[in-house]
Simulated scan of single mutants.
Amino acid sequence: MNAAKAVRAVMYWDGAGWAWMAFMPLVWIVLLGLVVWAVIHLVRGPSGAGSGGGSREAERRESPREILDRRFASGEIDAEAYSEAKKRLAEH
């Protein structure tokens, strides 16, 4: 092997250098994406409540009966509509 070929082999890994040059930007993009994901995950918290800091209990969905009770208690529906809806819920 002559000197020129030896230098080329050391500098360019026998022509495989282009593969690393194409691969390294992808590595940096993935690394940057992981850092951004980690920061967002840490800021939101494990419950995904955002900066409001709500508890899992507050995020729980209301049952149909709880919605009905809440609407009756707030005055959205009258006693007649409440008892009719309660009967229908009991049937299902």
Rank of each mutant, 00 (worst) to 15 (best):
M1Q: 12
M1K: 12
N2W: 12
A3D: 15
A3P: 08
A6D: 13
A6K: 15
A6I: 15
V7G: 12
A9F: 13
A9C: 10
A9M: 14
M11T: 14
Y12A: 12
Y12N: 14
Y12H: 13
W13Y: 14
W13A: 15
D14N: 15
G15T: 03
G15W: 00
A16T: 15
A16N: 14
W18P: 04
W18A: 13
M21E: 15
A22R: 13
A22C: 10
F23N: 04
F23C: 05
M24A: 11
P25L: 03
P25Y: 06
V27S: 03
V27C: 02
W28L: 09
W28Y: 11
I29F: 09
I29E: 06
I29T: 06
V30A: 07
V30W: 01
L31V: 09
L31I: 09
L32H: 05
L32G: 07
L32E: 04
L32D: 03
G33M: 03
L34D: 05
L34A: 05
V35H: 01
V35S: 05
V36C: 04
V36D: 01
V39Y: 04
I40M: 10
I40P: 00
R44Q: 12
R44E: 11
R44T: 03
P46W: 08
P46E: 10
S47P: 02
S47F: 11
G48C: 07
G48L: 02
G48D: 03
A49D: 08
G50F: 01
S51I: 06
S51Q: 09
G52W: 05
G53S: 07
G53Y: 02
G54D: 06
G54A: 10
S55Y: 04
S55R: 08
R56H: 05
R56D: 13
E57T: 01
A58K: 09
A58F: 11
E59V: 02
R60M: 09
R61D: 06
E62F: 10
E62D: 09
S63G: 08
P64T: 06
P64C: 02
E66G: 04
E66Y: 06
I67M: 07
D69Y: 07
D69G: 00
D69M: 01
D69R: 06
R70N: 00
R71M: 10
F72W: 10
F72Y: 12
A73M: 08
A73E: 09
A73F: 00
S74I: 11
S74N: 09
E76W: 08
I77A: 06
I77T: 01
D78F: 02
E80P: 00
A81D: 11
Y82C: 07
Y82V: 02
S83E: 14
E84A: 11
E84N: 10
A85C: 07
K86S: 05
K86Q: 06
K86E: 01
R88H: 08
R88P: 00
L89N: 03
A90W: 07
A90I: 05
A90Y: 05
E91M: 09
E91R: 11
E91T: 09
H92G: 10
H92W: 09
